[in-house]
Nucleic acid binder design. Structure first.
Lengths: 146, 146
DNA sequence: CCGCTTTCGATAACTATTATTATATGCTAA
DNA sequence: TTAGCATATAATAATAGTTATCGAAAGCGG
């Protein structure tokens, strides 16, 4: 029961209610480096919670994102969102054909210069290095803030 | 007629047929730094081609992307794709609320370290720097290649 | 345990994109 | 220049991923 308490604490500390569904989703994401999609998460959690709905997964991920428990990004497969529980800034490798997403180990300086060298085995032929700097709010959005 | 010929040449050089629709779309994209969506492009081109369909815009952009005339990325607004005719590797600033996309001038080394410093006026509060390295194919996709 | 609030799940709606197909048009070779 | 072929176009329908609605169920503070 210790693991459950640990996860429940994480939720509570972020002001989120503790429910079996949220625990299951958080448990699946915790330490996960596979960049799963909502569908992936749904499939995995369904094993323990056959009645869970995809909607709930989306709602939960939305809550997790707002609470900064996961990072959501859209650079990968088709138009699916990928969810990454690793909050450390780090680069991703995306296959331009299948959209698979992998982590790059490099997290420091000279990212672009190092990109080609640090590509994991099986990735090659860099077409382009796309760098997306994501900030909280642009000026316009900040103005409209309360 | 000179400008038209210039654009037509660009198309032909990439093995693309020259049509009024393609010329209009290319003309709109040429030198454009606004990262327009398919919808944006559709709206702009409709001025000269009221009969053009959104479908044609998508098909044309798909052809342009394959011919490497534009770069398509999905990191911005909701799940819309943005199209960028600038083929030079360069970073983008994305507002996490409205999804607006701006170019960062920096294109060299130390991108991540420089990101905060090089943020254009009106952007602030860096939540996270997301770096996406896009390669041609991962090993699996390359194996299935002919 | 009570009551208030939030979350859940079923269902439907929505948005961005892609597929289908008949017609129209660009392009090539005679 | 034109015939014929391949490709592009536009109308329409379909799809994928996600978000909205709402009644029922469950968490949480007292």
């Amino acid at each position: 029961m210790k693991e459950r308490d640990r996860l429940a604490d994480i939720l509570r500390r972020r002001g989120l209610r503790v429910t079996p569904q949220r625990l299951a989703i958080l448990s699946f994401l915790d330490g996960n480096t596979d960049h799963p999609t909502a569908e992936d998460i749904y499939a995995a959690v369904k094993a323990q919670h056959p009645a869970i709905s995809l909607n709930t997964v989306y709602k939960t991920l939305e809550a997790f994102e707002e609470a900064d428990l996961v990072w959501r990004f859209r650079a990968g497969q088709k138009h699916k969102s990928h969810y990454d529980p690793n909050s450390r800034t780090h680069p991703h490798v995306v296959c331009t054909r299948c959209g698979s997403v992998d982590d790059l180990p490099d997290d420091g300086e000279n990212l672009q210069a190092d990109a080609e060298k640090s590509l994991p085995d099986g990735h090659h032929d860099v077409l382009r290095v796309e760098v997306c700097v994501v900030v909280g709010l642009c000026e316009e959005c900040d103005d409209h803030d309360e």
